[in-house]
Amino acid sequence: MNPHAEDHFGYRLVRRLGQGARDLQPHTRNRLDDARRRALQAHRRRRKTLGEVLLSRLTPALPDWRAALAMVVVLLMPVAGEHFHTATRVTQLQEVDTALLIDDLPIDAYLDTEFRAWLHHASQS
């Protein structure tokens, strides 16, 4: 079909549709109008906001939330391991330090390494 014939066909089609629309019952016309509005609104909702567009550009390697969750788990595992190690170490220090600080012997007794050696030799003699 050449361009002129296309234009002519389009013109005839619009005229025919316009005539058909005029012949529709008001109830039918209203239903079609409502359906058109809903379709336009649904189309607008699908468009991304600027924030969504920027975020998707910043995180192109995350196709869905499962991949994001997997990434978080991978990132948090060393942190959790380190945290567990630190927490265990701190708990041990808390126990020893409390016991040492309330002990009958003063702190100096535990800093003096010769005292331990002296005790060792004294117990043997």
């Binding site: 220090l93 020893v96 330090d97 409390t98 016991a99 040492l100 600080l101 309330i102 002990d103 012997l105 003063p106 702190i107 007794a109 535990y110 800093l111 003096d112 390494t113 005292f115 331990r116 005790l119």
Partner: peptide, 29 residues
């Protein structure tokens, strides 16, 4: 409680190496 509070500052002012040495000696004794 009294001994603990009395020794807190002295303990806090030790170097990490000194504290570790004291803990080792405490465990040994």
């Amino acid at each position: 409680q009294g001994r603990l509070q009395q020794r807190m500052r002295e303990w806090a002012q030790l170097s990490p190496d000194e504290r570790e040495r004291a803990r080792d000696q405490y465990r040994a004794l």
